[in-house]
Every structure is written in structure tokens, then in C-alpha cells.
Design a protein around this nucleic acid. Structure first.
Length: 415
RNA sequence: GUGGCUGUAGCUCAGUUGGUUAGAGCGCCUGGUUGUGGUCCAGGAGGUCGGGGGUUCAAAUCCCCUCAGCCACCCCA
């Protein structure tokens, strides 16, 4: 181990990478604001139970992926957040925001999961997250999917992403179906893969997304959840589909789409892509009507999704460069002093200003070139004596002298 | 947690059956230009060959362990 190594699965976000990520988060923030989402954030760590109770004691995330530790008092079990939903719902209940429904939250920041890193998967990663709490009807489902679609379009990646949709039904439908499915699978128990046997009672729906060929053969004739939805669940899902169609949001039904977390009900969805390798989900989520109650809050419906910032940034590619700066190049002590004031004035007028601090003229111009300056303003003793500045266009190489008093206006085209 | 591939300069990579002082391109620095970048020319700096151990007269090269990355399983954002 070298101290210069980052911990496995963590990465420095150097300026170029940060800029690409920032485009994703900025886009999500701007677009979601148009839909009435307000940014907030729960703490980066919470009592472990916040996650274990909601995501499911037996879920993969809780059983093997959480960073859990005792705090210094030795009395509290703490976990680094592996997702946003549980924390936001806890915040909603903690602060008794029931009368603020519909409560629409946008959040972004780091999440932590102890997993083997690979493309699109790291131990510290970042998400954008949308949640609507307190809306029982399909309007929330439709709106939450609409923001997601809108953000993907705005990032220019929508063409490579498809929306997969399924209904997990209400608790009543799900419980009834669960019994039927177990009854169907039971006779095949010995033939199922080890993983699927595990899931048989814990979460039998998960057998559907097994990659084992034999499992898939068995499951091919299994009863389908969609055929066992009660009327309410069917009507609910139907309304969501209609709403999406109305908004020209394309989707494909995927009866095998089962999410790994226990709290989902009704609508479940994933925006997936083929372009990122095995980790194809860029945005995923669903409805979780029982979650806040499970936390000990008042029954409150909710729906939301999370999107992977790294994954979306990979798809969106390099973000456009920032505004090109004006480079100020003082030569001599008098010019240094003068230029500091000029830099302040230009910055207050909205210019991005790079001050060339050190080295000879050549060095400073070189630096101006590297930071992508559109124009360099050279001020030495000659210029000071005449009350002018030498203004050099860095693209054309042309330069001319301008009165310093007129600089702020003269540079306007470079702002 | 399991399997496969990879790790040589800041970056991308070459390095023959183990054999002198480990190379290239890009980047960086200096000079050609006393106050002119980006182009061009000349020169230069920079390497614990991921780390540790072993085999050998000799290891970047072979063996073992370990760390990290990538790819897949698993799972998911």
C-alpha cells in the first residue's frame, strides 16, 4: 500500500472530471427545478437502521455492501449512506413535513457501497436523486419519469437509453402472487441455481432476473405478476402507461424487472443503455408507498429514482469548456500594483481574469495560452507611461494599444 | 465474494530465447527571441519497471505473495 494510492474503488475528481460530473448535476438541478423539485440533502451517514429497515434486512446492499461502523461512543451503529431514498424519507418523517406534501426533493452527492469495482461501479460514487413524497396518485409516477426523460434528453443521451417499466402491484397483489410463484417454483427447487434457491422464500421475484439458463427455462412457464395484479393495481399501472404515452415518453414493458430492494410497490422502472457494458442502468427507481411507515412515520406514499453521475457523465462525454479568460500580464513592480486593481475591476464587471504572476513575458504568455485565454492584456512601464495597455488577441496574434480607461468596454467581445 | 486480463517516464505505449547504461511519441523545462504564446528548430530533465519475497552469475522478463486497474459473474446508479 502506498499513501499516494486512493482507497480501492475511490477516485480523485480532478478538474476535468469534475467539470463533466458537474454538467450532469447542474443539468439535473436546473431541469428538476422546472418541475418544482427543491434541492436538499440528508447527512452522509445515518443510523444503520435507517437503511436496514427500509431497504430490507436481507437485501444485498444491507447484508454485504454497507460501510457500517460503531461511532466513538461505541454505542451507535452508523452507516455511510448507500442510497438517498431512505435518508430523505427519514428527514421527511423526522421533520414532520407531512403537511408539505407533495414534497418534491432533488439531491446529489456521494454514496458508498462496498462492491468490487468495475466499469461504472465504484465504492464511492455519486448520484442525482428525485423523490416525490405524499402523492398517492399516478401523477407523481408520470412526473418523476418525465423529469428523468427530460434530463436524459438535455444531456444528449436519450437516443441510447430505453425505459423499462413494470408494475410490482400493491401489497395485496404482491403477497397473493408471491404465494403462487413459490408454489410453482417449489417442485423445481433442486434444479434451481444456488442463488435462486436462496431467493425462493426471501424474494422469489428475483428468480426472474437470474442469468442461469436452467432458471430461465423454469421461469419461462411461471405465473406472471402482471396476470395476478388486482383491479386497483392494474388500473394504476394502466394510468401510468397512458400518461407516458401522452407525454411521448417511449417505454417497453419488462415483466422480469424486479428491483433488489424490498420497499418497492407498483411502478418500477430502469432507464438502461447498451453503451456502458454490464452496468447499464443509468437511472432507476420506483414507487415505495410503505417505506415511511416502515421507518415509523405516518403512512405516506412516495416515488423516486436515482441516477448514476459517473455513468451519465461517461455517456454525455466531455462537457464544454468554461468561459475563456482574459489574461493580464504585468511587467514590473508598478505594473503589478496597477494590474491587481485592474483585475479586480474586470472581475467585478464579469470577466474571467487570469493574472500572470511570475516569470518573463514569454512564460506569462505561455501560461495565458495554456489556460485558453482569448485575449492578453500586457502592461509594462511603457504602457503605464502612456496610460495604455497592449491588448493581444490570442487567436489571431494581432495586438494594439488601448487607453486603460476604456479597457472594460473594449474587452467586451471577450467576456 | 468468484473468475479472466493488465500494471515500464506526468500520459499513451514498445522492450526479442533472462544478458551492457530500460526506449519512443506526447507533455514538461531551457535556448533560438533584452517585452511576445500557440507553429518551427536545437538541447535537457524525468524511471523504487505497482510493492514484497524467491530462482539465477545475471530478472522489466521466470516463480510465489500482495496492492491496484480493467472485464465479467453477482448486484446495482
Amino acid at each position: 500500500m502506498s499513501i499516494f494510492q486512493t482507497v480501492r474503488g475511490t477516485h480523485d475528481q480532478l478538474p476535468d472530471v469534475f467539470r463533466d460530473h458537474k454538467r450532469v448535476t447542474d443539468t439535473a438541478r436546473d431541469i428538476s427545478a422546472r418541475y418544482g423539485f427543491r434541492e436538499m440533502t440528508p447527512p452522509v451517514f445515518e443510523f444503520t437502521q435507517v437503511f436496514s429497515r427500509t431497504m430490507g434486512e436481507t437485501s444485498d446492499v444491507v447484508t454485504k455492501e454497507m460501510y457500517t461502523f460503531a461511532d466513538r461512543s461505541g454505542e451507535e451503529q452508523i452507516s455511510l449512506r448507500p442510497e438517498f431514498t431512505a435518508g430523505i424519507c427519514r428527514a421527511f418523517a423526522s421533520n414532520a413535513l407531512y403537511d408539505q406534501a407533495p414534497f418534491k426533493a432533488f439531491a446529489t452527492g456521494p454514496l458508498f457501497r462496498y462492491e468490487r469495482p468495475q466499469k461504472g461501479r465504484q465504492r464511492q460514487f455519486h448520484q442525482i436523486d428525485m423523490e416525490i413524497l405524499g402523492v398517492p396518485g399516478t401523477a407523481a409516477d408520470i412526473e418523476v419519469l418525465a423529469v428523468g426523460q427530460h434530463i436524459l434528453e438535455e444531456l444528449g443521451v436519450a437516443a441510447d437509453v430505453t425505459l423499462k417499466l413494470n408494475s410490482l402491484g400493491d401489497p395485496e397483489s404482491r403477497a397473493a402472487y408471491r404465494e403462487k410463484l413459490i408454489a410453482y417454483l417449489q417442485p423445481f427447487r433442486a434444479e434451481l441455481s444456488a442463488d435462486s434457491r436462496e431467493r425462493l422464500h426471501r424474494n422469489p421475484l428475483r428468480v426472474f432476473d437470474s442469468k442461469s439458463e436452467r432458471d430461465q427455462e423454469i421461469v419461462a412457464d411461471a405465473p406472471l405478476l402482471k396476470d395476478h395484479l388486482n383491479d386497483t393495481s392494474k388500473a394504476f399501472f394502466d394510468e401510468v402507461c397512458k400518461g407516458l404515452t401522452r407525454l411521448d415518453i417511449a417505454f417497453t414493458l419488462d415483466p422480469g424487472l424486479v428491483r433488489g430492494l424490498d420497499y418497492y410497490t407498483h411502478t418500477a422502472f430502469e432507464f438502461v443503455t447498451e453503451t456502458l457494458g454490464a452496468q447499464g442502468a443509468v437511472i432507476a427507481g420506483g414507487r415505495y408507498d410503505g417505506l415511511i411507515e416502515q421507518l415509523g412515520g405516518r403512512p405516506t406514499p412516495g416515488i423516486g429514482w436515482a441516477g448514476g453521475v459517473e455513468r451519465l457523465a461517461m455517456m454525455a462525454g466531455e462537457a464544454p469548456a468554461a468561459q475563456r479568460p482574459v489574461a493580464l500580464i504585468p511587467l514590473g513592480a508598478a505594473a503589478d500594483a496597477f494590474t491587481q486593481v485592474l483585475a479586480r475591476d474586470l472581475r467585478k464587471a464579469g470577466y474571467v481574469v487570469e493574472l500572470g504572476y511570475s516569470g518573463n513575458m514569454k512564460r506569462r504568455l505561455n501560461r495565458a495560452n495554456k489556460v485558453g485565454a482569448a485575449v492578453a492584456v500586457i502592461i509594462g512601464d511603457d504602457e503605464l507611461a502612456k496610460d495604455v495597455a497592449t491588448v493581444r488577441d490570442m487567436d489571431s496574434g494581432e495586438q494594439r494599444e488601448e487607453p486603460v480607461a476604456a479597457l472594460v468596454e473594449f474587452l467586451a467581445p471577450y467576456r
